[in-house]
Design a protein around this nucleic acid. Sequence first.
DNA 1: CGGTGTAAGTTAGACCTCTAAGGTTATCAA
DNA 2: TTGATAACCTTAGAGGTCTAACTTACACCG
Lengths: 195, 195
Amino acid sequence: MKSESAAGAKLPTREILQHWREAVPGDRLAHLVKDATRALVRALQMRLVAHGVPFGHWAFLRILWERDGLTQRELSGRAGVMEPTTFSALKAMEGIGYVKRRRLPENRKNIYVFLTAKGRALKEKLVPLAEDVNRVAVAGLADEDISRTREVLLAIIDNLARDEERSADGARRVPSTRELARLVAAGTKARRSRA
Amino acid sequence: MKSESAAGAKLPTREILQHWREAVPGDRLAHLVKDATRALVRALQMRLVAHGVPFGHWAFLRILWERDGLTQRELSGRAGVMEPTTFSALKAMEGIGYVKRRRLPENRKNIYVFLTAKGRALKEKLVPLAEDVNRVAVAGLADEDISRTREVLLAIIDNLARDEERSADGARRVPSTRELARLVAAGTKARRSRA
DNA sequence: CGGTGTAAGTTAGACCTCTAAGGTTATCAA
DNA sequence: TTGATAACCTTAGAGGTCTAACTTACACCG
């Protein structure tokens, strides 16, 4: 309440406006996408803390609720993050008691990840939170605009992935958008080509 | 080259596809936005390393090229990040020699940030990189779809900002999407209301 | 003049992510 | 069987971001 009236005293708003209108048009879209990500992440994060679930665990829980017994590598692929990220998240999740990491005799190289009852039980509580965020986020928007947006974002990811692949040929720089590449490309195109 | 044929041996692609098509529809959009951000960031980052510029400095340089002599707080607002982030980035940038941080007699509470010649000179080299990323990213997309996407993203940010503001009244949780809130709202609405 | 409060900057500590490099297990061919 | 190669996991270290708490400077009022 007080932050409302007290804080807004300066309103350099006009300058900000100018910034948004005049700035190098080239990367406005990138900024927008980035800001949207932050807003979405924060919204979910805020809701998650109430249940004591770190945001970083969300992505993995979501995947595991659908199907567990995956390896860490598969989890990485689906979550779209690198393996060390997956590793430390899962290690922490095991510590909390959401999952169990096990080797199976069939292939002792892999680590298979299984939900515990506790981890599985979170689904009921947490999924509605994500749905809530989504509902709030797209309130008042036309379905068609949203799906158009989805197409645009997919195309952007695809474009950038191809580009990275192309330039990686000559000089391998900061590898790995390709990971996303494969993921997304699969989600869109694979649908209508051969499977 | 080898990664192409050798790595894709397993192609759990079909599973991935399923994931993207069937998953809780609630947060697919959020994931997409997040993935797009990552792809965009990576693309710029890859180009930036060639010039020895850390990605974290880009946002500040971009703002300063337009106008320098801003305070750290103003910079934070425009970049859409919290002050400690700004602080450490600028401290590093000063170390490298891109900027000077100065107190002015008029108000010794503030730290004003000015570009050095070196920092200013980067503009010519770096701006084209960002433009390149943008060009690649939106290749083949209709202008209208892009601008529609922009509207959608702005609306999402705005929606989430309002929501955060609303829930912060009762229980202050993880404050601060509001920062974005103000920024973006200014960029869109302020245009057609009073300034 | 001194005190209270607010604004800006800073420090501390945590989380998530990444790249690079090391270790272990599997696979396959000589 | 053994040695090379690959797949997966793990460790190490860094970057960027955030919140919370502290410090310094200003502003205003009594």
